[in-house]
Design a protein around this nucleic acid. Structure first.
Lengths: 150, 150
DNA sequence: AAATAATGATGAGGTACCTCACAATGAGGA
DNA sequence: TCCTCATTGTGAGGTACCTCATCATTATTT
């Protein structure tokens, strides 16, 4: 019965799911006073240690400008600090504060729970399959960068 | 070798892919003077005919306020019109214009091509599998609505 | 050393979503 | 009829991203 699945169908489904998923996860994060974007930054800072914003942008795949903005918010809320880099007077080093670490921990708990609520319907084997498929797509994306519109 | 795939892994991969995918698709759409959000509205209007914004919001899964904003933009660019509903003086009926239909057609072409570039790496069978998995998740999401934080 | 290029961060401005509050209208009941 | 309640659309304000232009600094070339 199920007709061949076009790429557009796949994209459509992917995007629709994202719309719902994002809303749910974001709302969950908000209950801990954070958001997805902010959590992403905290996670990187936690696992890689303090770094300047350009590095952060590279790791996150964000535009540098977006990092400035997100860090602005985090700094305002006291979750990170920005200090001068002694070796490069342009750069500003972002570091987690104690309460930033606390917030991150709370956020991770909520995020884990939410993701479990969402992807828990799938069996471990199905999850593995899903991740494998998504990674295939992602790898191809990274390589080709698509936009060959010359 | 590959350890069990947690729900968080799945979510992580999903979100990371989305970040890239969205950027690419959006950029592609921009080349035709549209955007993903705007295209979504045009698609609905094309397939369901003119309708008020509340209905549109329902179909799209958007907040009503978001529809107002998107339609504002489309109207400004002459792609849709807003007319009064003779049966309900609160409502405003949104309809495609001729140039809206043209824009949609161009957008669909670009979108199809882009999605092919992205999901074309997968075999039809893999795409079917992917869509099936995503739909499983989505269905579950729609049912439970998750946020049982009472 | 001087000129040029690359890089780090940010200002300005844009789109796509969201929530919450509210005016106007519509619909159903006392 | 009048009262209440639901619904439509929008103002106000917020977050997360983006691009492009710009300034200060560092690195590279000549």
């Amino acid at each position: 019965m199920s007709r061949t699945v076009s790429s557009v169908d796949a994209g459509q489904t992917f995007l629709e799911l994202h719309h719902q998923l994002h809303r749910i996860v974001d709302r969950a994060m908000a209950s801990v006073g954070l958001s997805l974007g902010r959590a992403k930054v905290l996670i990187r800072l936690d696992s890689h240690g303090p770094m300047n914003q350009a590095t952060l942008a590279g790791l996150l795949g964000f535009a540098p400008r977006s990092v400035t903005e997100t860090v602005d918010g985090l700094e305002r809320d006291g979750l990170v600090t920005r200090t001068e880099d002694p070796h490069d007077r342009r750069a500003r080093i972002v570091a987690l504060t104690a309460s930033g670490r606390d917030a991150l921990e709370a956020a991770m708990t909520v995020r884990n729970k939410t993701m479990d609520d969402i992807f828990g319907v799938l069996s471990p084997a199905e999850r593995a399959q899903l991740v494998s498929l998504l990674n295939t797509v992602r790898t191809n994306l990274a390589q080709g960068e698509i936009d060959c519109d010359h």
